[in-house]
Amino acid sequence: MALDFDVVDLPETDHVDVGETAPDFTRPLVNEEYWGDASLSELVAAGPVLLVAHTMNGAFPATYMWNEIRDRGWGERFDVQVVGLSISDPYAHKRLIEERGIDHALFSDPAADVAAEYGIEHDLDGMAGVTEFRPAVFLVDGDRTVQYAWAAQEWPDFPDYDAVEGALAEL
Results as ranks from 00 to 15, higher is better:
A116Q: 13
G84Y: 04
S86N: 09
D103H: 13
Y91C: 10
E99D: 13
E68K: 02
I87M: 06
L124E: 03
A92V: 06
D71Q: 11
A111D: 15
W150A: 02
D89H: 10
E68N: 05
A151D: 10
L85A: 10
V83Q: 06
H122D: 14
D125E: 12
V114M: 03
I97Y: 02
D141H: 05
D143W: 00
G129P: 10
I102N: 07
K94G: 07
V80Y: 08
L106V: 07
D89Y: 12
P90C: 06
E132G: 11
S86G: 07
A105V: 13
Y91W: 15
I120H: 04
S108N: 07
Y148H: 12
D109K: 01
E99H: 13
W74S: 03
R77C: 03
H93L: 07
E132T: 15
D113S: 10
D141P: 03
A92Y: 02
P135H: 11
P90G: 09
D79R: 14
S86K: 04
S108D: 03
E132A: 12
Q81V: 00
H104G: 11
Q147R: 15
E121Y: 03
A116M: 08
D141Y: 05
T145G: 03
D103T: 13
K94A: 09
P90W: 00
A116L: 12
F78Y: 15
F138Q: 02
V82M: 04
G119T: 01
W66N: 01
A115Q: 01
L85N: 11
L85W: 12
V146W: 00
A149M: 07
A136K: 00
A152F: 13
G101C: 11
D113P: 06
A105K: 10
G129V: 12
L139G: 02
V137K: 02
L85D: 12
D125W: 03
E117W: 01
Q147T: 09
H93E: 05
V137S: 05
R70N: 13
D103G: 15
I120A: 02
G126H: 04
V140A: 08
A152W: 15
L124D: 01
G75C: 07
F78L: 08
W74E: 06
G84L: 07
A112T: 14
